[in-house]
Design a protein around this nucleic acid. Structure first.
Length: 223
DNA sequence: CTCCGGTTTG
DNA sequence: CAAACTGGAG
């Protein structure tokens, strides 16, 4: 009995992984912060993406990187100018946060972005999500991260009602780990984020064209 | 657990 | 007009 459940569990994870990877091959979005492995540029992107739409970040990202090409440029300009350059993204504390983040990286790590989760998480503004995202995006490290998109996909397919704390829950983390398995984490995470943003959307998801619909409890209950 | 914010979306 | 957006801090 136990073994059957385990097999079914891994079978669903296997299908989610392959279906989303295949979908990503054709539909993955093409943001500038995905063309680089430079941890600095990825760090900036994650800071901007904090509770903010990717399309909004896309508007200002390139010019921001042009103006602030490295971590020292952030500190040199000071919090006030940063705040102004990030204004269109909302969350007014973001400028101060980024300044403190850059200052600590220079002070504690001689200007080098840490390449491990523990050190990243110790920095201001860097939580579970952003730290794992840097690890995954810059180093292709198998660091699972749960954001609003991946939580929504998992909650629907598995029929688990999402709560405000789902992104920190052990249950969701374990499922995410089983989906990642030993795949190309970087490619899978980007595909999954985009799948959530384009197909498995919050309002009126595109269930009719979703490759996961026959596995999805949300879809089966909707019919 | 609650709050944050300009912009976008329904 | 309300709710959501690749979350993190207090």
């Amino acid at each position: 009995m136990m073994e059957i459940n385990k097999k079914e569990e891994s079978d669903i994870s296997f299908r989610i992984r392959n279906i989303i990877l295949a979908w990503g091959e054709k539909n993955m979005r093409n943001f500038p912060w995905r063309h680089t492995r430079d941890p600095y540029k990825i760090l900036i992107a994650e800071t901007m993406l904090h509770r903010t739409k990717a399309s909004q970040v896309n508007h200002i990202y390139d010019s921001f990187i042009m103006k602030y090409p490295d971590i020292y440029a952030i500190v040199d300009t000071g919090p006030h100018a940063l705040k102004n350059d990030l204004k269109s993204l909302g969350l007014s504390y973001r400028g101060d946060m980024l300044y403190r983040l850059a200052a600590q990286i220079i002070e504690k790590y001689d200007g080098n972005i840490p390449d491990n989760i523990e050190d990243l998480k110790s920095l201001p503004g860097m939580g579970d999500y952003a730290s794992s995202a840097v690890m995954c995006s810059a180093y292709n490290s198998p660091a699972p991260f749960l954001d609003t998109n991946t939580v929504r996909i998992i909650s629907r397919v598995y029929g688990i009602k999402p709560t405000d704390s789902s992104r920190r829950s052990k249950e969701f983390k374990m499922i995410m780990n089983s989906i990642i398995d030993s795949s190309d984490t970087r490619k899978l995470m980007f595909s999954m984020l985009d799948f959530g943003a384009i197909v498995c959307t919050h309002h009126t998801p595109e269930c009719s064209v979703c490759g996961l619909n026959r596995d999805c409890i949300f879809y089966r209950e909707m019919k």
